[in-house]
Amino acid sequence: MTERNTTIASRVGLHARPAAIFAEAAGNLPLEVTIALEGVPESEAVDASSMLSLMGLGATHGTTVVLRAQGDGADEALDSLVQVLQTDHDAHS
């Protein structure tokens, strides 16, 4: 099992637009990825490709989450998802 911890960068947290972007990225991967708040048991992790599950986490700006995946390409997959979470998708340009 491969695991990554990262912090939510979007100023509104993992909500609406950031959750949709992340869920789509996770859903496009060839393996199953789970996400949970730091400190939550692995058995309570949710499907990272489910927007409703992501929003249900209640992950706000600065919250640390744990991503987990298993199988070929897990390292690269989690690295790409960490980049999505470390981007403030609500920043106004």
Score class of each variant (00 low, 15 high):
Ala25Ser: 14
Leu31Gly: 00
His15Cys: 02
Gly39Pro: 01
Val82His: 06
Ala48Thr: 05
Ile21Glu: 07
Asp90Leu: 11
His89Trp: 15
Ser93Phe: 13
Met1Tyr: 10
Ala20Asn: 11
Ser53Met: 14
Met55Phe: 06
Leu31Gln: 10
Gln70Leu: 06
Thr6Gln: 07
Gly58Thr: 11
Val40His: 04
Ser10Cys: 03
Arg4Ala: 12
Val82Phe: 07
Leu57Asp: 02
Ser50Gly: 02
Met1Pro: 07
Leu31Arg: 12
Glu44Met: 14
Arg11Gly: 05
Gly13Cys: 09
Ser43Gly: 15
Thr87Ala: 11
Val46Ser: 02
Arg17Tyr: 03
Glu32Ile: 13
Thr63Val: 04
Glu76Pro: 01
Thr64Val: 15
Ala25Gly: 03
Glu42Asn: 09
Gly71Arg: 13
Thr2Tyr: 14
Ala69Val: 07
Ala48Gly: 09
Gln86Asp: 12
Val46Phe: 04
His15Trp: 05
Met51Phe: 13
Asp90Lys: 04
Gly13Met: 01
Phe22Met: 11
Asp90Phe: 06
Val40Lys: 06
Ala69Arg: 02
His92Ser: 14
Ser93Trp: 04
Ala59Ile: 03
Glu76Ser: 13
Asp72Leu: 07
Ala69Leu: 07
Ala25Cys: 08
Thr87Glu: 09
Ala69Cys: 04
Asp72Cys: 01
Leu29Asn: 10
Val66Arg: 12
Leu81Ala: 00
Leu57Trp: 02
Ala19Thr: 12
Ala25Asp: 09
Thr34Asn: 05
Arg11Ser: 13
Ala19Asp: 10
Pro30Arg: 12
Leu81Trp: 06
Thr87Asp: 00
Val82Glu: 04
Leu81Tyr: 06
Glu76Ile: 08
Asp88Ala: 05
Leu57Pro: 00
Thr64Gly: 02
Ala36Asp: 06
Ala19Gly: 06
Leu29Pro: 02
Ser53Gln: 15
Val82Met: 08
Val65Thr: 06
Ala19Pro: 10
Glu76Val: 13
Asp72Pro: 00
Glu32Arg: 15
Leu54Gln: 08
Leu67Ser: 01
Thr7Pro: 01
Thr87Met: 08
Gln86Met: 12
Arg68Leu: 08
Leu81Phe: 11
Asp79Gln: 14
Gly71Asn: 10
Ala36Cys: 04
Asp90Pro: 00
Gly62Thr: 11
Met51Leu: 15
Ala9Met: 10
Glu24Cys: 00
Ala23Ser: 14
Ala26Asn: 10
Glu42Leu: 11
Val33Gln: 01
Phe22Trp: 11
Ile8Ser: 01
Arg11Gln: 14
Leu14Thr: 10
Ala23Pro: 08
His61Phe: 04
Leu78Trp: 03
Glu42Ile: 06
Glu3Cys: 00
Ser49His: 08
Asp90Asn: 08
Ala19Ile: 09
Gly27Ala: 08
Ala45Tyr: 06
Leu78Asn: 03
